[in-house]
Design a protein around this nucleic acid. Sequence first.
DNA 1: CCTTGCCGGCCCTTTACCTCA
DNA 2: GATGAGGTAAAGGGCCGGCAA
Length: 320
Amino acid sequence: MEGGNISNVLFQNDRLPCSSHEVLDSLWMTDSPIPPPPPAAFHGSTSVVNFSDGRRKNAREKALYTQLEQEGDENEAYYDNYLHQPEKKRRLTAEQVHFLEQSFEVENKLEPERKIQLAKELALQPRQVAIWFQNRRARYKTKQLEKDYGGLKSSYDKLKADYDTLFKENESLKNEVHLLTEKLLLREKGKTNAAEGQKDISVCGSPEEVAEMPVAAFSSIKQEDASSSVKSDVFDSESPHCADANNSSILVPDDSSHVFEPEFSDLSQDDGDDDSLSKSFLQPPFFPKLEDECYNGLSCNAGNLGFPNIEDQSNWFWAY
DNA sequence: CCTTGCCGGCCCTTTACCTCA
DNA sequence: GATGAGGTAAAGGGCCGGCAA
């Protein structure tokens, strides 16, 4: 483990080049007309490698040295040594990083004058400052993306929780509707049986029974009262019709196709087809035709109320 | 005014090294 | 001491805009 002594690292960074290829390396790094002060002996030598862009310098220099190598230059050993010299990366000191961070907070773009000023103050190559800013911008962008992702994810989680809550509530309401429907069916079956036992005696039920009729049944009465006297034939062609239109219409099937059918077919339907009765009670004027989809086994989406399936809705939303 | 080549800068990706557990 | 993961300095390639010829 290397000693984390800042002053040591700083000194390492600031040390003057002590070998020829270090000098050359240092000069390669220079992309400014005002490089940090090299040893006086190397003043002016920058013209050899005075390219503006580090990578262009490297490409050209490496091409040159590669060519020399191939030509079997007498300095082959030196160039080979130079070319294969492992690059040493030196971490910036804490002070340098702190200073650069402060500068980055002020402005994350680097003007040439500022770059040179920073390089001077931090004893770095201007190109090092430029590279640090490039990398810093990249890190900032990554952080920003992570932050945005976190925000979006939390929004997603919140919406999903809301959706789950609503979905459960919807399921609960469905179950409630289902239970109430079954209760209603049982009650009306009981009434029908009682009415059949009494129909030879009384007309169509006592006032108390009428008072207990479900709202839906009353709605059906209003809807159907115009043809009630005809439809009542369907249910009991042999018995006297209800004198009271309100009472007779309770037993009228909603499906008007029965109206003009022969009486024998009506009778055959009536036998053992309790659902046809129940259907008539469960035809609220504001509901869709439930019997078409729902009352074949009572496994229907009773709570749906004609709205699109909520799970489909979820697909609309999450498809975005 | 348009074209062309050069230069410098930035972005993105990759590489190489450093640090730490 | 070896090792793998994560962080980071730097290189390389592509692209773009400014500028002068």
